[in-house]
Design a protein around this nucleic acid. Structure first.
Lengths: 225, 225
DNA sequence: GTTCAATTGTAAATTAGCTGACATTTTGCT
DNA sequence: AGCAAAATGTCAGCTAATTTACAATTGAAC
C-alpha cells in the first residue's frame, strides 16, 4: 500500500500521466520520501547523488548563496512543481538550497539516472519532458525581462498578478492569497530592497488596491492592477 | 550531391553527431535552405509552420518588439547555433524576428513536427536535446542574473569577455574581435542606454584596456578585464 | 565629390531606488 | 506573561544611470 501511495503521488503530476503502472513502479522503487516543516533547510544540489524532486505539498523557496554570502531567491516552488537538476546535467559549483515556507511540506524524489533511463525507454515522455523544460525556460525569460525593463512598482504589480492567478481564491473581482512570504521575500523576488517593497505595498494599501497582513493578501479588484 | 551537402551541414552540429546517415537524410528531405545579406530581416515566429533553424554562417540578432514598439535584443546567434522554437512549443503571440548582422548568412531549417518525429524514434537524441535546452536555460539564467545584480560597467566587461571567448582571435594576452555590433546594439545587450555604453567604451579606451572601431575591437589584455 | 542618414561623442539635469539608521510592531518561545 | 528575534514602517542622504539635447564623425548612395 505504501507502493500504491507513491504511485499516486507521482501519477498526480501531468508529466507522468502517460506512463503505465509498471513504468511508474520502476521509478518508485527508488523513490524517496521526505517530510519537513517550516523554516527547515533542504540541501539538494551538492553532496548527494543527483536527484529530481517533486513537491507534493506546501511551498518552498530555492535560495542561492553567492561568494559574498548574499542570499538570493532563485525560485518559488509550489505544490505539484518539479525542481532540482531539471536539465539532467549536474553542476556542483552551484550553492543552492531549499527553505520551507509553509507549515509543512511533502517531497518525493527520484534519481536522475533512473529518470534518464526511463526517458530512454519512453520517447513520448522524453518529448513531454523537453516541452516541460522549455516551458520553464520561457517563464524564466519572461520574468527576467520584466525585472530588467520595468520599474519596481510594475514588477510588484506583475508579481502579485501572477501569484494571484496561480494560488489565489477568486471572489468576483477580488482575490485572496494565502501569504507565506515576508516582505523581504517579496522584495528579493522582484529584485528590489526591502524598504522599497514595504513602501510600495503600503502605498497600495492606502490606495485601497489591496489589504496586506502576514496571513493573507486580499486584492480588492484584480483588474485594476 | 546537394543532399550530401545538407547532410554535412546538419552533421556539423554536435547534437546530430550520434545520428545515422539515414536518420539525417530523413530530416534533410524537408530541410530548407536560405541565404540572406546584411540588414535583412527574417521572420520566423509567426505565419509559417513552426520550424527550428540552424545558423550555418554569419551572425544574426533576435529582436523582439513590445506593445510600445520598442525593440529589444533577445539573443545574438552565432554560426553553429540553433534558434527558433527550441521548446517544441509554438506560441504565436511572440513578435520576434531575426536581423542579419554579418555581410551574409546561411540558414538551414527543418519542420518542428519532423524533428519531433525524429526524437520519438531516437530516445538518445531526445535526451541530448533535453540537455541542450537545459544548457541554454542555464546560460540564460546566468546572463540574466548578471544583468540584475551587477552594474553597467561589470556587465560590459562580462559581455566583452564572453564575446572574446566565443569569437575572438587570441594572440598572447591580446584578443581581437570582429565587430559586427554598433554601440547601440551592445548597449541593448547589456541593458543600458546607448550613452552609457559609449562612455564606458571610451573610458576603457583611455585606460588602454581596448581599442574600438566599427570594424574590430582589440582587447589589449584579456586577463585585465 | 556631395549629401544624408546612421553612428558616435559629450554634458547637464533629473530620478528611481539603494543604503543606512532608526522606531515600532508582531510572533514564537519558555 | 515576558522576552528576544523577526518583521514591518519611515525617512534623509546618496549614487548610478537615464533622459534630453546637441555636436561631430563616419559611411553609403547618388
Amino acid at each position: 500500500m505504501y507502493e500504491e501511495l507513491k504511485y499516486w503521488y507521482l501519477r498526480d503530476h501531468k508529466l507522468f500521466r502517460t506512463l503505465s503502472f509498471s513504468q511508474i513502479k520502476q521509478l518508485c522503487i527508488i523513490t524517496g520520501f521526505k517530510k519537513a516543516s517550516k523554516g527547515e533547510i533542504i540541501y539538494f544540489s551538492s553532496s548527494d547523488v543527483p536527484r529530481i524532486f517533486l513537491l507534493k505539498k506546501g511551498n518552498i523557496k530555492i535560495v542561492a548563496v553567492d561568494d559574498n554570502g548574499n542570499e538570493t531567491i532563485k525560485d518559488i516552488i509550489q505544490k505539484g512543481d518539479l525542481f532540482g537538476e531539471l536539465t539532467l546535467e549536474t553542476d556542483n559549483k552551484n550553492e543552492e538550497y531549499a527553505k520551507v515556507l509553509s507549515d509543512d511540506v511533502a517531497i518525493c524524489s527520484f534519481l536522475m539516472s533512473d529518470f534518464e533511463d526511463l526517458l530512454l525507454r519512453n520517447p513520448t515522455l522524453a518529448i513531454s519532458y523537453t516541452k516541460f523544460v522549455g516551458l520553464k525556460m520561457k517563464r524564466i525569460k519572461n520574468s527576467y525581462s520584466n525585472l530588467i525593463s520595468k520599474d519596481a512598482k510594475t514588477r510588484l504589480y506583475q508579481f502579485l498578478k501572477d501569484w494571484a492567478e496561480k494560488e489565489g481564491t477568486v471572489n468576483g473581482n477580488s482575490v485572496t492569497i494565502e501569504n507565506y512570504l515576508t516582505q523581504n521575500d517579496i522584495a528579493q523576488i522582484i529584485c528590489t530592497s526591502r524598504q522599497t517593497a514595504t513602501q510600495l505595498l503600503n502605498e497600495m494599501e492606502t490606495n485601497h488596491l489591496l489589504s496586506y497582513n502576514r496571513k493573507e493578501i486580499v486584492i480588492q479588484d484584480i483588474t485594476k492592477l
